[in-house]
Design a protein around this nucleic acid. Structure first.
Length: 124
DNA sequence: CATTTGACTTTGA
DNA sequence: TTCAAAGCCAAAT
C-alpha cells in the first residue's frame, strides 16, 4: 500500500461536504508541497470502493477534473453544487470561498489541542 | 534499477 | 492580463 497514497486517500475521505480541497493543499499537508501531481495520481488510482469524495478535490484554480475522471466534469459539478458549493461563471469552483482548511478539521487535530492553526512547521 | 507518466503548481514573457 | 513552459514528487512499468 503506497504510504503516500494512503495518506491522500484518508485525507480526501475527510473532506467535509460542501467544501473542496486542492491537490497542492493536500500534498503540502502530507509534507510535500510540490507533490500535487502525485496526489492527482493517487486520485486516478483511487479505488472506488473507498468512496473517496474525489469530486471535492479540484485544482488550485478551481478547475474540475477532466471529463474522463467522473464520466463528465458536468457530473462532478452537479455533485458539488448539490453539496452547496458555489461555482464561478466559467464552471470553476469558487475555491477561495469553499476551500477546506485541512488543519481546521477536528479529526486532524492532535489530541493535545496543540497547533491547529499554524500547523506543520511551515516557516515561510 | 532506470524511465515514463500524471486528475498540478508556479513562474516567465 | 492572458498564454506558455519548466519543475517536482511519487508510483507504475
Amino acid at each position: 500500500m503506497a504510504g503516500f497514497f494512503a495518506e491522500v486517500y484518508r485525507l480526501v475521505a475527510l473532506i467535509p461536504r460542501g467544501r473542496v480541497a486542492t491537490y497542492g493543499q493536500i500534498a503540502a499537508y502530507l509534507g510535500s508541497p510540490r507533490a500535487a501531481r502525485t496526489v492527482g495520481w493517487a486520485m486516478r488510482q483511487a479505488p472506488e470502493q473507498l468512496r473517496l469524495p474525489c469530486h471535492r478535490v479540484v485544482s488550485a484554480t478551481g478547475q474540475l477534473a477532466p471529463d474522463h475522471a467522473f464520466g463528465g466534469a458536468q457530473v462532478q459539478r452537479a455533485m458539488l453544487e448539490s453539496e452547496g458549493v458555489a461555482f464561478g461563471p466559467e464552471g470553476c469552483v469558487d475555491v477561495d470561498a469553499h476551500l477546506w482548511r485541512i488543519a481546521d478539521d477536528p479529526r486532524l487535530r492532535t489530541r493535545r489541542g496543540g497547533n491547529p492553526a499554524g500547523g506543520l512547521g511551515s516557516a515561510s
